[in-house]
């Protein structure tokens, strides 16, 4: 993970701005009767990469839009870079960079024209315009395509150019809403390298994703599900603390069938297909392992000894969602 050490020397801290973070208190957004964001509270520290993780429709974009001052919260409060998200939305805009979920540069303008446009809109001082432009072009690796229409660029280039345009004005905080969706794995990897470099320069990065592997790259994570923040912490903390149950890995053929019989055993919460085997969520692994071995043997499965493993973030997330759904289920029946 990115080290914290050189962040203290970065130019972004010379602003004398002590409150360069994001804080949210009980933030709520309703669309009519529907609550898209439900009382979310969290803090993002200076210079960290904060990952906002959740399935589609969880409320990630809605939260980010409120932080960027595009959407008015229905309740709660928050500050970004020391400015109130309700009353100082315009000041916030000068201090943040934002990359929306949808590619949002002008496809009918060239790479340079897009950069010039944002450079003018952000009022980059004249003497800095050219260096910043060169910096973005170099960062995005677009030196040979500077005069190409943006429409002709591949997905990875577009993403990097969009990032470049969003940070032309050197904001101390950037919000990236699913920046890597729909991009090939190599480009995704390259994009995360860029994010690290920015974080190493002291920029605070608030990034949403639904890729679990990307979540591992973050300094800290918030899990959001149905508008609620269901867990918050470093990837390590989430894997160790937030999981009451233990994970047992079962490798066998016909895992689908094995899953059904394993789930019927006592002390087993849940089993899920995972790669070529199963991840079984058990209350206690030491009891579950012999039980599973015995049950699979009687059912005629050829399986090696199941093993207890350290949960992945995905296990943690799935388990948290299961718990949440179990809590919500009786209530839903009541509502019907």
């Amino acid at each position: 993970m990115c080290s914290q050490k050189n962040r203290e020397h970065s130019p972004y801290f010379s602003h004398g701005d002590l409150d360069n973070t994001v804080t949210l208190k009980e933030l709520v957004k309703r669309f009519g009767d529907f609550t898209a964001v439900n009382r979310i509270s969290l803090d993002v520290k200076k210079g960290e990469i904060f990952g906002f993780l959740g399935p589609n429709g969880a409320g990630k974009s809605t939260t980010i839009r409120m932080l960027c001052g595009i959407l008015r919260p229905s309740g709660g409060s928050g500050t970004v870079a020391g400015f109130d998200i309700v009353t100082d939305a315009e000041q916030i805009k000068e201090h943040i960079g934002y990359m929306s979920q949808k590619f949002s540069l002008y496809e009918d303008l060239t790479v340079e024209e897009n950069i010039d446009f944002y450079s003018g809109i952000y009022k980059i001082p004249a003497e800095k315009k050219q260096p910043r432009k060169e910096w973005v072009i170099a960062m995005a690796g677009l030196a040979e395509h500077r005069a190409s229409l943006t429409a002709t660029l591949s997905g990875g280039w577009k993403q990097r150019l969009a990032l470049g345009c969003a940070i032309l004005h050197e904001p101390p905080i950037i919000f990236l809403d699913e920046p890597t969706s729909g991009v090939d794995p190599i480009s995704r990897r390259n994009f995360w390298d860029l994010i690290y470099r920015l974080a190493a320069d002291g920029i605070t990065v608030f990034v949403t994703t639904h890729y679990m592997d990307e979540a591992e790259y973050c300094d800290r994570l918030g899990f959001i599900y149905r508008g609620e923040l269901i867990a918050l912490g470093t990837p390590e903390e989430l894997k160790t603390r937030h999981m009451a149950e233990e994970i047992v890995e079962v490798l066998c053929e016909r895992p689908q069938d094995a899953m059904e019989i394993i789930e019927e055993l006592p002390g087993i919460r849940h089993a899920a297909l995972f790669g070529r085997g199963l991840h079984v969520v058990a209350e206690r692994a030491v009891e579950a392992i012999p039980a599973i071995t015995a049950r699979l043997a009687t059912a005629g499965f050829q399986a090696p000894q199941p093993e207890r493993i350290v949960p992945s973030l995905e296990d943690v997330f799935v388990s948290l969602i299961e718990t949440k759904d179990r809590e919500a289920a009786p209530q839903q029946e009541f509502e019907r």
């Binding site: 960027c68 001052g69 595009i70 315009e90 805009k93 000068e94 943040i96 934002y98 929306s100 949808k102 590619f103 949002s104 540069l105 002008y106 496809e107 944002y118 809109i121 952000y122 009022k123 969003a166």
Partner: peptide
């Protein structure tokens, strides 16, 4: 429609 409005709106324009 193309989503650039959202990007414009977060600039200080």
């Amino acid at each position: 429609e193309i989503g650039t409005m959202e990007q414009i709106v977060v600039t200080p324009i």
